[in-house]
């Protein structure tokens, strides 16, 4: 990996901030419906007299959701890759998002739970339990938590969880449609009143994760060395994992399980900024927000007049990257 010079680092931040601004701009102006500029302004200012302006007004919360969820997933992916020292770690691949989805679906179907706030708690609980489970399965047995074993444990868990979700949903025709489209992963139905309760959760997750940069840096040197450097490894790992879980659960509760953002983004950020997690973590947040926002825009454009759910776009863009990572990395257990 290239060693990052100081100006280089600021350049990274500047580029990604610029990209995020561009993403937000595109997300507000580009859509299934072409809207002239004056109506875009009208929509942003809340005057929804014309259809075009109304369309733009709907895009505002949608953009906010994409940025929030994307940032959360990008950061969570970076933290997970750091904790497990596994270049293939991603909340989608490890089944964590699927676990969050299962809890939300069970909440809807069996306990008649509704309301954004409750979904958030359910999502976080599901993400936490699944993360612990997958990690335990992946780490048990010979060789510890190799990328192959963790990925397979995540895949197996995802399949089991999906079977369970279908078993819960199928007998309930009344909720099947909404759950199915939510499960693919979409930001289309965003509203500010469901988005606002998530902000405190996202902030807590963000702070916990960003604060774990030192621990992750130490862990990158190996567990023994990290302990030798005076890091409380166990506690630090726990804090970092808690941050990542809160972020994944929040993002999944808001827009369904979305994969591959957390995989792609940290790798790209390491190419820009080197291996220092103090840089990689904030950069991953910015880049994740841009990636999900751009994927959403892409999904609106390619299938006009229909829209592609953003989860489909990220899988389609992210899976080749996953394959590329597998081909190029010299990993433990590969």
């Amino acid at each position: 990996m290239m060693r990052a010079e100081r100006p280089h680092r600021f350049a990274g931040f500047a580029i990604l901030l610029g990209l995020l601004v561009l993403t937000v701009g595109l997300s507000l102006t580009v859509g299934a419906r072409a809207v002239p500029w004056d109506e875009v302004w009208a929509g942003l200012l809340g005057q929804i007299d014309s259809i075009g302006a109304a369309a733009v007004a709907v895009r505002v919360p949608r953009t906010a959701l994409a940025v929030l969820a994307g940032g959360a997933l990008g950061l969570a992916g970076a933290v997970m890759q750091g904790i497990s020292r596994n270049p293939l770690a991603d909340p989608g691949i490890l089944g964590v998002n699927a676990g969050a989805a299962l809890f939300v679906v069970i909440g809807i179907a069996w306990f008649d739970i509704s309301g954004a706030q409750n979904f958030l708690w359910l999502g976080i609980a599901g993400a936490g339990l699944t993360a612990v489970f997958v990690y335990l399965v992946g780490a048990t047995g010979q060789g510890g938590a190799t990328p192959l074993k963790l990925t397979l444990a995540g895949t197996a868990t995802s399949v089991a969880v999906s079977a369970f979700i279908i078993a819960v949903v199928l007998p309930r025709n009344d909720i099947a449609g909404s759950v199915q489209s939510w499960q693919v992963g979409g930001v289309g139905g965003a509203r500010f009143d469901t988005l606002l309760p998530a902000v405190p959760f996202a902030v807590v997750g963000l702070l916990l994760s960003l604060a774990s940069a030192r621990v992750l840096n130490a862990l990158a040197l190996g567990e023994e060395l990290a302990t030798g450097l005076g890091q409380s490894v166990a506690l630090g790992r726990l804090m970092a994992a808690a941050g990542a879980v809160v972020l994944c659960g929040t993002a999944t509760a808001l827009c369904g399980p979305i994969g591959f953002v957390g995989l792609v983004v940290p790798h790209l950020c390491r190419m820009i900024a080197g291996v220092d997690y103090k840089l990689v973590l904030p950069l991953s947040t910015l880049a994740g927000a841009s990636m999900l926002g751009l994927s959403d825009v892409l999904g609106r454009v390619v299938a006009r007049p229909n829209e592609l759910d953003v989860g489909i776009v990220t899988a389609f863009v992210g899976a080749p990257f996953f394959i590329w990572t597998v081909r190029n990395n010299r990993m433990r257990g590969l």
């Binding site: 691949i93 759910d309 996953f322 394959i323």
Partner: peptide
């Protein structure tokens, strides 16, 4: 025959499943 093949297969599955869902 190794782990690489399985992991690449998992990646390709994810892509194909997204086509199917779409």
């Amino acid at each position: 025959a190794g782990a690489r093949l399985i992991l690449i297969g998992i990646g390709i599955s994810a892509m194909l499943d997204s086509i199917t869902s779409y």
